[in-house]
């Protein structure tokens, strides 16, 4: 086939370009991801006592996870297009992580020095990052699949952003099962789990995000 014939062919009956192509692939993947992580957390690990919902404990974690998911989703959307405009979404990701870190530091400073280590490590610091990572895997699969159907031209960066998004969604699910109360715990161990998922995305990105 001649190239000019292909041009005729592609334009014939082409109609308008699909609108909101990026959101229409990413949002359903994110929805599936957060649903899976919530269901897995509630069934495999078990729910936190309902009384905790009257305290700020789960809301702080959910707020952090969902704010980070929004920022990382914005970054992923940017990196799903050729010529990615990443400056502002990257700033948003850093702002969310920094805000949580500040909250953690403020919480530590407000308590007696002797309690700080216990607040930092809680009773589950060893398990938390791995749980977040494990609960993020369905979201990571769904989101990588979504991004692969778009046009990422920087696969490693796009994979990392996708991993952060998935990690944040996994953390949102985990917050339904996690009884840790201190902001410092969340700032460190949740962020570590999300970062691990990001690293996994960066490793898989160049392999998976081919088109």
């Amino acid at each position: 086939m001649k190239t000019q014939a292909l041009v005729e062919w592609l334009s014939r009956g082409a109609g308008p370009a699909p609108r909101h192509a990026v959101a229409r692939r990413l949002l359903p993947a994110a929805g599936i991801g957060v649903l899976f992580s919530a269901v897995l957390a509630l069934t495999l690990i078990g729910p936190i006592p309902a009384s905790l919902y009257a305290t700020p404990v789960p809301w702080m974690k959910l707020g952090y996870a969902l704010a980070l998911a929004a920022a990382a989703g914005w970054l992923t959307a940017a990196l799903s297009r050729p010529v990615a405009r990443v400056v502002r979404p990257r700033r948003a990701v850093l702002a969310v992580v920094s805000a949580m870190a500040l909250l953690g530091v403020a919480g530590l400073l407000a308590m007696p020095a002797g309690d700080r280590l216990a607040a930092l490590l809680g009773h589950s610091w060893l398990a938390c990052p791995w749980n977040v990572l494990a609960l993020s895997l369905p979201a990571l699969g769904a989101a990588l699949w979504a991004v692969r159907g778009l046009a990422p031209t920087r696969p490693r960066a796009a994979g990392f952003a996708t991993g952060l998004l998935a990690g944040a969604l996994g953390a949102a699910g985990y917050s339904l099962s996690c009884t840790e109360a201190s902001a410092a715990f969340v700032a460190i161990w949740y962020s570590l789990g999300i970062g691990l998922t990001g690293a996994l995305g960066a490793v898989w990105g160049p392999r998976v995000l081919r088109w």
Partner: peptide, 10 residues
């Protein structure tokens, strides 16, 4: 060209 067409939504 085929890729441009398929990805014009991005």
């Amino acid at each position: 060209l085929l890729a441009l067409h398929l990805q014009r939504g991005t």
